[in-house]
């Protein structure tokens, strides 16, 4: 190989290449989660690509590394959707739990076991998010957008609230999921997301693991 013949460049090169691969694969996952490719949807629920990436990363790393990956990708998913409630919580938990599984000790390392972990983590992710929806504010950012643009009352609720107040003040309520809706939707979302994500998990996990294995063997694993 070329790397062997150029010993001076051998040390920094794979480490740098590793970061390039890491950044590009995260970007690919982020963009894939915006697209709804044919075959990646089950009952209108798409694949959770960023969660698959966090699992692929964390299966062979420490708790701290798993948590950091969850933090960064959680912020990214917030950027792609809405920041309240934040996806950081669920992805950090996924990173920690996956790293805790100590995969190399208990489960054989192949893409079937990665798919199994992804299945469980998808259910965990959606459950944590449903809990957040139940107990936390649901995206007050929409109001911030309205305030920033100034002229609008975004969402029709403000104007209607004033007009309705004179006849019957009882109806005024915060827009967002009601707890009943959250938990009936949670069943469907958790199951569909788990099935579809675990089916597509090898697409991300397999090449990445192959690369990290090669890197592992060729030198000490960069963190």
């Amino acid at each position: 190989m070329i790397l062997r013949r150029l010993p001076r460049f051998r040390a920094p090169d794979p480490a740098f290449l590793n970061w390039v691969i890491v950044v590009l694969s995260v970007l690919a996952c982020a963009l894939l989660s915006l697209a709804r490719l044919p075959g990646t949807q089950l009952a209108d629920v798409g694949v959770n690509w960023l969660m698959i990436w966090v699992v692929s990363w964390s299966v062979r790393r420490s708790l701290l590394q798993g948590a950091i990956a969850g933090l960064i990708l959680g912020l990214l998913q917030d950027a792609l959707t809405a920041s309240q409630p934040s996806h950081v919580v669920s992805l950090v938990i996924v990173g920690l739990v996956t790293a805790l599984l100590q995969k190399q000790r208990y489960i054989q390392e192949d893409f079937i076991s990665v798919a199994l972990i992804v299945f469980a983590m998808a259910v965990l992710t959606e459950t944590v998010f449903a809990l957040q929806l139940t107990f936390m504010v649901q995206d007050s950012d929409l109001a911030t957008v309205a305030a920033a643009t100034g002229d609008f009352s975004l969402g029709d609720s403000l104007l209607d609230a004033e007009s309705g107040a004179q006849t019957d003040p009882g109806w005024v309520q915060q827009a967002g999921y009601t707890p009943v809706e959250i938990w009936s939707r949670h069943q469907r979302v958790a199951l569909s997301s788990a099935i579809v994500s675990s089916l597509w998990a090898p697409l991300i996990a397999y090449p990445l693991n192959l690369w990290w294995e090669w890197l592992d063997r060729s030198q000490e694993l960069p963190r």
């Binding site: 798409g46 998010f129 309205a146 643009t149 609008f152 939707r185 997301s193």
Partner: peptide, 22 residues
């Protein structure tokens, strides 16, 4: 949307085409 809970879409026209918030 990049999650299973929020319902929004991204459209291929923006500020340059005269679209405004609201």
């Amino acid at each position: 949307a990049a999650n299973q809970w929020w319902q929004h879409v991204i459209i291929g026209r923006g500020k340059g085409d005269g679209i405004k918030v609201g």
